[in-house]
Design a protein around this nucleic acid. Structure first.
Lengths: 189, 189
DNA sequence: TCAAAAATTAAGACCTGCTGCTACTAGCTC
DNA sequence: GAGCTAGTAGCAGCAGGTCTTAATTTTTGA
């Protein structure tokens, strides 16, 4: 690690701390080829808490996070919603959504995005998926942003017919037709 | 907090630490009306690490957990596999797989279980989901164990037709037909 | 080119939350 | 009374810092 300008070093510092929050000042100092004191000053300027503080934050955060990550009722980010009609959601394909070998996204993510969106746009308190017909058109890779657009095309009794089309920035990658059922009274399908 | 017998105190200690891992020895000592030293001895006997250790564990755990939760290539536990023919997998529905209100399992879990199983039984290096037709027959609740059985019913070129049927301990709750495509050369579907 | 400003390093006292060790006491039990 | 367990106490030392004061080096601007 060669010596670099202050600004550059501070950027590197931020980066390192983000990637490996478990580094002590001493280790950081070695990595960046400056003294421990300099690291401390940098942390002060940048508002980066000390190792123990960082760890503590993660632990506290983690307690909630582990829950909330899985708890998210919607896979993807709702970016538009017209209850009872349509909705749009965005999902970024990250490294942990793909097969290690092929780097192709596992199908459940597209399905989950579509399924939760289909759920979300229906204006009823209790909705479950009844039937799904899905087609994967092209493989999706890491880093792609998937836009799913859902639309209720028909309602019959407690059954909602929803179409979802998912695009990346170039083409349609996935489409699905769902029959969603609003539960509550209706026990038969 | 009245003084209690050693065994009782140690049980309480374990309990407190589990519930609130962020308590220092001093606070624990106050809570249990003994000296700090006693708490230290107790921790030693019980193999409870110090505050910083506990926090650190949580933080590390959390980092992996977030990843590994999503990383599992197969949703559910493979309990039988005849490559190229069939397979069986087991999935326990836990509290974080259900809708908070209704306690009904979100559909993607059954789909994901089926989809990964369908993937797993195909004897080819690169397989993606092409088409899926799924039907949810009855809602699934927390605590149920789902047994998915998959079978390859037809192979045509690089396309594999797979049927998956998922039961709980009483009845069929879900079924799916997949067309899986072994990738590699074949770019068209 | 030279002084002022900025950046870096150093040194020392202090903090928290411990570990590890030795020592002591009280209460019971055989 | 000897021997045991359980509980306390005190002190040195450690990691990984904070906070402060000060000296040294580098850069920069006029």
């Amino acid at each position: 690690m060669a010596r670099v300008k202050k600004k550059v070093r501070q950027q590197l510092l931020v980066q390192q701390v983000r990637e490996k929050p478990f580094l002590t000042d001493e280790e950081l100092a070695r990595n960046l080829a400056v003294s421990v004191q300099t690291i401390r000053l940098d942390r002060l300027e940048l508002g980066i808490p000390e190792l123990r503080g960082r760890i503590r934050q993660m632990a506290e955060h983690a307690q909630n996070k582990v829950k909330s990550i899985q708890k998210s009722e919607v896979v993807g980010e709702l970016i538009d919603l017209e209850l009872g009609h349509s909705g749009i959601s965005l999902l970024r394909i990250t490294d942990d959504m793909v097969f290690e070998k092929s780097k192709i996204a596992r199908g459940h993510y597209m399905f989950s995005q579509a399924d939760s969106l289909a759920q979300a746009i229906i204006d009823a308190p209790l909705v479950v998926t009844g039937v799904a017909n899905v087609k994967y058109k092209v493989p999706v890779h890491v880093g792609e942003k998937l836009i799913a657009k859902a639309e209720i095309v028909k309602v019959r009794g407690n059954k909602y017919f929803v179409w979802v089309k998912t695009h990346n920035d170039r083409q349609e990658v996935f489409r699905a037709k769902f029959i969603m059922v609003s539960w509550a009274e209706a026990k038969g399908m």
